[in-house]
Design a protein around this nucleic acid. Structure first.
Lengths: 224, 224
DNA sequence: GTTTAGGAGACTGTATACAAGACCTGACAT
DNA sequence: ATGTCAGGTCTTGTATACAGTCTCCTAAAC
C-alpha cells in the first residue's frame, strides 16, 4: 500500500500486526463476518496473542472489527446501507476539509496534492489499476491533511480506509476513475477559493455516492 | 479490585479500565501531559498490565492519549487551537446529524431528546451543576443517535467526549447553559424541518465556539 | 423422535515472567 | 567545566501460563 501506511514507522510488532490485519481486512483476505481467533492470527503472524489482542481493540475502535466480550471478534459486516451512511458523513466532512484546505493553503500542501495526482495519472497510464484505489484514498487523505486540523485527520484516516473498503467490497471498482474531479478540486484549493473547494469536494463525494448506489443496485447481491 | 463499576454492565476488566481511565482524563485527575505508566495504573486499579495496555491503545485511537513506542503513553495535551479544530469539525458533523435526525425522525428519538432536556432542566433547577456538562453531551449524543447513522455514532462519541473535555479544561464552564438553543433544535428535529434543524445545530455549535474562544482569551493561560 | 443434562474442547480474559530499550547518575577523561 | 561512557534502574514490548466461560457434541431420559 505504498506510502499510505497509517503508522509511518513500524517499530513495534503491535503496529505491524495492526497494519497487517487492516490490510487483510481491506483486501478481502479476511472477509466481513470472519471470526478473528486470536490464537490462529498469532500463529499465522508468528507472534504471541498480546500484540494481536491490542490490534483487535484498535481495529474495533476504528470500526473494522466488532468485539463481543467472551465471544470474540469478527470482521465488521458491510452492507449497502453502511456505504450510504459513510458517504453521507464524507460529504459533510470532506466538504469542510476542502474548505479549510483552501483557507490554509500552503505551497507544501498544494505540492503534495499535485504529487498524488501525478502518481495517479502515471498509475492509470501504466495500467496499474490495483493502485488506483489506494491513490484515490491517498488524495482524499492529502486534502484532509492540507486542512491542518489534527482532529479531522485522526477521524478521517480510518474513515477513508473504511470507505475504500466498503466500496471495493460491495460495488465493483468503477473503471476509469474520474480524476478530472480531483484535478479541479485541487485547483480550487490551490487558488484558495473556499466555496468552490467545498462545492467541488461535496460534488465529488456525491458523484461517488451515486456511482456506488447504482453499482450496488446492479449487483443486487451485496455480500452479507 | 476497588469499586470501578461505573454504570452500565461492564463485563470485562478491560472495559472498566477503559472507562475509568477515560473518566480520570475527562475529570482532570489525569491532566494533559501526564505520563501513563502501565505498572502504576495497573496497581492503582488493582489489575494487571494487560487490561491497562489494551485500554491505552483504545484511548489513543480515540485521541485522548498519545503513545510513542518504547517511550510510553501520555494524556494528550490540549490547546485552544485544538478546541477550535474540534468546533470546526463539530459544526459540520452535527449539522449533518441534525439534518438526518429531522429526516428520519421517529417518536422514540423525539422522546429521547425531550427526556434528556427534562433531565437537564431538573438538574439546573436543583443546582446539580456538575451534571449539566454531562447532560449537554448526552443531548448532542442523542441527536447523533437520532440520525440513525451508525458510523456517525461511532465517530461522534469520542469526539463529543473530547469536546467536553477540551471545553472544561481550557475554558471555564459557562454558567447558565443555553438550553433554549437545545429546545429549539429539538423542536426543529421533531417537526422534521431538515434545513431548520441543521441551521439550529450549526448555530448552536458556533455559539459554543464563540463562548469557548472568549473564555480562552479571557483566561489567557491555557494549560500547556 | 425430541429434548435435555453433562462433559470435552476451544477460546477469551487476566496474570505473571522475561527480554530489551531508554533514561539517569556519576565517575573519568579532556 | 564540559563531554562521554559505563552501570544501574525504570519502563515498555512480547511471550507464556492459567482460569473461567462458551459451544458443541454426545448420550440418556421421556
Amino acid at each position: 500500500m505504498s506510502d499510505l501506511t497509517l503508522g509511518a514507522t513500524h517499530r513495534t510488532l503491535r503496529d505491524e500486526v495492526t497494519n497487517e490485519l487492516r490490510r487483510r481486512i481491506l483486501s478481502g483476505e479476511l472477509p466481513p463476518g470472519e471470526r478473528l481467533v486470536e490464537d490462529r492470527l498469532a500463529a499465522s503472524l508468528g507472534v504471541s496473542r498480546n500484540p494481536v489482542r491490542e490490534s483487535i481493540r484498535v481495529l474495533a475502535t476504528e470500526g473494522f472489527v466488532e468485539v463481543v466480550p467472551r465471544l470474540g471478534a469478527t470482521v465488521s459486516r458491510l452492507s449497502a446501507e453502511e456505504g450510504e451512511e459513510l458517504f453521507d458523513v464524507r460529504m459533510a466532512v470532506e466538504g469542510l476539509a476542502a474548505r479549510l484546505a483552501a483557507r490554509k493553503r500552503t505551497a507544501a500542501s498544494a505540492a503534495r496534492l499535485r504529487q498524488v495526482l501525478d502518481h495517479a495519472r502515471q498509475a492509470v497510464d501504466e495500467g496499474r489499476l490495483e493502485e488506483v484505489a489506494d491513490l484515490n484514498t491517498a488524495f482524499h487523505l492529502a486534502v484532509v491533511e492540507a486542512a491542518g486540523n489534527s482532529y479531522l485527520s485522526l477521524m478521517m484516516k480510518p474513515m477513508l480506509l473504511r470507505a475504500q473498503w466498503v466500496f471495493s467490497r460491495t460495488a465493483a471498482a468503477r473503471g476509469p476513475h474520474s480524476w478530472s474531479e480531483h484535478v479541479s478540486l485541487c485547483e480550487a484549493i490551490a487558488a484558495g477559493d473556499e466555496d468552490e473547494a467545498q462545492a467541488r469536494a461535496v460534488a465529488h463525494v456525491a458523484a461517488a455516492r451515486r456511482s456506488f448506489l447504482t453499482a450496488v443496485r446492479r449487483a443486487k447481491a451485496p455480500n452479507d
